[in-house]
Design a protein around this nucleic acid. Structure first.
Lengths: 203, 203
DNA sequence: CCGATACGCAACGGTCCCGTTTCGTAAATT
DNA sequence: AATTTACGAAACGGGACCGTTGCGTATCGG
């Protein structure tokens, strides 16, 4: 047994540099965060930004899409823990996480990709949605369904439509809202308006 | 007077072909509608699609942005006439116009540009917003303010936030809603949920 | 030390598009 | 008829990337 104790046989030769790998992914995310679309993203630009030879990229990923998928995958979406006490609080928590991400340098990657590349890169989008979008969507749906069950929300509420309203509002804000960051109480205000409705209370 | 009666002196030589001009703009819009971003849009592709020499394009427009602006300008946004009776009806009219456009081949141009190119082409975006977005935004704001004044909406309603909720919801639907077109009653359902609120009626 | 693999770098031929120029032809004025 | 401008097509030199290859060096196991 000349094999490492871990059980995985280390192949001969110089091992791949983890530093280079990190630099490549960082460079990729940086470029995307700066508004570069996947189509305009060039391997040469990534290599240059990462201080790495193109060979080092091609050795690891066979296509640009694979690289982008892996890069985006490192952006774990740490879903905020939900208190689970009131639906209002949980909704605010979820929406505020979206707000915080839209201000985050890396969070914008997710937005930019989701907004721009949906049509043009369906395979990428599919994997990306499964990894980053679906978990949040599920969390939001669960909160809403819990609210319907508990009576905190209307029994006849169209949960899918409610999800569109909440998500769409936050997305709109992060795209066309004030350029210098969204106000801290935005999520709370959105939730309160949406819960109470825009119409005056029915006397 | 060898000048045309209209008063505009016709310059000597062969006049420019209106047919070619139309073909160029049509080709440009087609490509954008197919999901091509402004950055990926190439003059050669437009010329080829329009059945036109590149010279004919460069003679008329000095930059790609100018061409795109002119092309988008031909998409007049025919704001739907508002009945002005109830705020609910007017909101439904406005939102349903957005729904209809998202199904329209050419309407998608507006969406695609607005979603993807905002960061990368600020000058283009500025002119585009002024021409296509601002009128709708103004109409929506007026309806909401009228509702606040008339008592159909809460007196303390944050109109700007309400606009984000309504617009964002429709945009979200047209981007991630069912691929085979949005349901005809979507606008009505959105407006009713947003007006009445998701919370159950307070006793 | 030796073989194997990875590294950064530079160069390759190929493709796409740029913006310009040239060409022969078409359509208007004078 | 002569002049002027526009037309489509083709070709130009130039630039950006592509994906690949060769180079000398670095780093691993044996």
């Amino acid at each position: 047994m000349t094999i490492q104790g871990t059980g995985t046989a280390r192949p001969a030769g110089r091992p791949r540099s983890e530093k280079a790998e990190k630099a490549i992914i960082e460079a990729t995310l940086d470029l995307i965060a700066e508004g570069m679309g996947v189509s305009e993203l060039s391997i040469e630009a990534i290599a240059s930004r990462a201080g790495v030879g193109k060979t080092t990229i091609y050795r690891r990923w066979s296509s640009k899409e694979d690289l982008v998928v892996d890069a985006l995958a490192t952006l774990k979406a740490p879903l905020p823990p939900l208190a689970g006490v009131s639906v209002r609080d949980d909704l605010i928590t979820l929406l505020d996480a979206m707000r915080a991400e839209s201000g985050n340098r890396r969070g914008r990657c997710v937005m930019n990709i989701a907004m721009s590349e949906a049509d043009r890169h369906p395979r990428l989008t599919e994997r990306f949605v499964q990894r980053a979008v679906e978990p949040r969507r599920r969390a939001l749906r669960e909160v809403l369904e819990r609210g319907v069950a508990s009576g905190e929300l209307r029994p006849d509420l169209d949960v899918t439509l409610a999800m569109a309203i909440l998500s769409g509002t936050m997305m709109w804000q992060s795209k066309w809202g004030p350029a210098d960051g969204l106000p801290e109480d935005l999520a709370e205000r959105v939730v309160d308006v949406v819960l109470a409705g825009m119409a005056p209370p029915a006397g």
